[in-house]
Amino acid sequence: MTHTADLGSRLQDAHPSLPVVLVGEARLPTTSGTFRALAYRQADGVEYLALVTGDLGDGHDVLVRLHSECLTGDVLGSLRCDCGPQLHAALEAITAEGRGVVLYLRGQEGRGIGLAEKIAAYALQEQGRDTVEANVDLGLPVDARDYTGAVAVLRDLGVRDVELMTHNPVKVRALEAHGVPVLRRRDLPVAQTVDNLRYLRTKRDRMGHELPGVD
């Protein structure tokens, strides 16, 4: 773990061209394992939390999850999505691996449209629209996420190439477009429920997600 004196030096000197700044680092014990928690911030205030386990060494073949913030799923245990189970499965995976990074992406609620807009989209889904149609009806992007800051955090951590835990091919393409090769993609368990089955099918059929086992 980085000591406080070393942290001050990194804040001033490390990677001055990156669009993120390391704000703090601390030990974080959780029910999924104990991690190094590194907090980053962009100039516009968007924050990222990197949960790191083990020694990343030369930065090659690092097990990584880019996890978009989902208050309803991650915190409240919503059954309308599979976000919470994916987050915990990813944390447990890097703990079992003994080496890896789960990068929590703040400001990406509802694929980047925000919490209030996500609830508005839910209301339209209850009237029969799917998750893609609801966003379009509200005049919002289907997916507004940007991964530039996430890549900057990975670079600051010394990550060179990854095994990516995702069902979303867009995340694979985003990393590779920013110069982070994805050596392999690893599936996460799919937490299918009565309430999220249509959502999962829409992600598979309309957004190209790889979702093995979805009925």
Rank of each mutant, 00 (worst) to 15 (best):
D74I: 04
Y104D: 00
L63I: 00
V153W: 06
L91A: 03
G114W: 12
D6K: 02
L154S: 06
E126P: 00
V142G: 11
A26F: 11
M1V: 01
G59V: 05
G139M: 09
A116I: 14
T30H: 08
T166Y: 04
Q86E: 07
N135R: 08
V75C: 04
V132N: 11
D61V: 04
G158V: 01
L188S: 07
E92C: 01
P141D: 04
R160C: 12
V46F: 00
G98D: 13
A174L: 08
A5L: 14
K203G: 10
S78D: 07
A5D: 11
V52A: 10
L103N: 04
V214Q: 05
H88T: 11
L79Y: 03
T202H: 07
G179F: 09
V190N: 04
V101R: 00
V62C: 11
G77V: 06
G33L: 08
V23M: 12
T72P: 00
L154W: 04
V194F: 09
E109Y: 11
H67F: 05
A144R: 13
M207L: 15
H209I: 08
R173Y: 08
G128V: 02
Q12M: 15
D215L: 15
P141Q: 03
H3K: 02
V151M: 05
H167F: 13
T34G: 08
T202D: 11
D58R: 08
T131F: 06
R173I: 02
T148H: 09
T30A: 02
G54M: 13
E69G: 05
T53L: 01
H67R: 07
L183R: 15
R160P: 04
A14Q: 14
T95Q: 14
V132L: 10
D74T: 01
T72F: 06
E176C: 06
R27W: 01
A89H: 10
L91W: 00
G54E: 12
L183D: 11
